[in-house]
């Protein structure tokens, strides 16, 4: 029976991720889209641990482990060296979390994109330093409680809005930029395959919900991923050759419904939910405007 998702599996069973991990699905789909001739560079992140201790591995592709801030530069070096070798048919992929991308790795990412290497940079966004124990990152959304933005006598939940790296990449002029999430695997895979057609840097931000850090039951990962899109908390878009395309959710839900699905937002009062809703609406309007330009 023909399937809409490539059947090839490059991720073996036996990984050590948490139950319901969104990041494992993100990797699995990306590799399905790209195939075996792929090398992945992974900095400090959940994915540096998921394959297990040496000599174990869970991916049937070469995987280079790097320090936190090194993803952008390492894929630059891999790409150029593979080209020197005559192996231009390899896909070179940086696969980093949101801390490794929005925070400590932003300079290295920006440099690599600016230089124009023919590489993929996949940011799997679980909105915090989840491998390290659920600390706040620049990509954590407004309202979220983390271990470094705890709600105690003072309600020190994250007071700043999410830094959206994909938007920064568009502003920088990266030729292919997209957002995706695991609840929509056909869309995710199609975007990776579209990116492959671009000879140059590609950036894809994949929302990868994390039951451990967002405090929802592991079996709800796909549902939470879907609600993030439906509530416009995480709009799906594709920006290629100067054309911007925004996906309209078919069954919109409110920000209130979204935040109620996760305990990390459970302390939020009506005013705070409204603040978040207003930011979500404001950003949606600005994305719609991008589409018309």
């Amino acid at each position: 029976m023909p399937t809409s998702i490539p059947e090839q599996e490059l991720m073996e069973p036996g990984h050590t991720a948490c139950q319901g991990c969104g990041a494992t699905l993100a990797m699995r789909y990306v590799l399905k889209a790209l195939g075996k001739k792929t090398v992945v560079s992974v900095p400090a992140s959940c994915w540096a641990v998921i394959p297990g201790a040496m000599p174990n591995r869970t991916l049937d592709i070469p995987m280079v482990y790097t320090p936190f801030a090194a993803t952008g530069a390492s894929i630059s070096g891999l790409r150029e060296a593979l080209d020197i070798r005559g192996d231009s048919d390899y896909n070179v992929v940086g696969f980093a979390g949101d801390g490794g991308t929005a925070d400590i790795g932003l300079q290295s990412l920006s440099g690599a994109m600016e230089r124009g290497h023919n590489v993929f940079y996949i940011m799997y966004d679980n909105e915090g330093y989840m491998n390290t124990g659920v600390q706040r990152s620049g990509s954590t959304p407004y309202g979220a409680e983390t271990t470094t933005t705890p709600v105690g006598l003072d309600r020190n939940f994250k007071k700043q809005q999410k830094k959206v790296v994909a938007d920064i990449m568009m502003a920088q002029g990266v030729p292919y930029v997209a957002t995706a999430t695991i609840a929509y695997p056909e869309d995710l895979i199609r975007k990776v395959q579209n990116a492959k057609k671009v000879n140059g840097p590609k950036f894809i931000q994949i929302l990868a919900p994390c039951p451990t850090g967002w405090y929802y039951p592991p079996e709800k990962t796909i549902g939470v991923s879907r609600m993030a899109v439906q509530s416009r908390m995480f709009p799906l878009y594709e920006y290629s050759s100067g054309t911007f395309r925004l996906t309209r959710p078919s069954k919109p839900v409110t920000v209130r419904e979204y935040v109620q699905s996760q305990k990390r937002f459970s302390h939020m009062d009506e005013d705070e939910i409204r603040t978040l809703q207003e930011e979500v609406d404001r950003r949606w309007e600005s994305l719609l405007e991008k589409e018309t330009h």
Partner: peptide, 10 residues
């Protein structure tokens, strides 16, 4: 890619 390895796994 014919001899996939992890370079620097933990």
């Amino acid at each position: 890619s014919d001899r996939p390895m992890g370079y620097g796994s933990y």
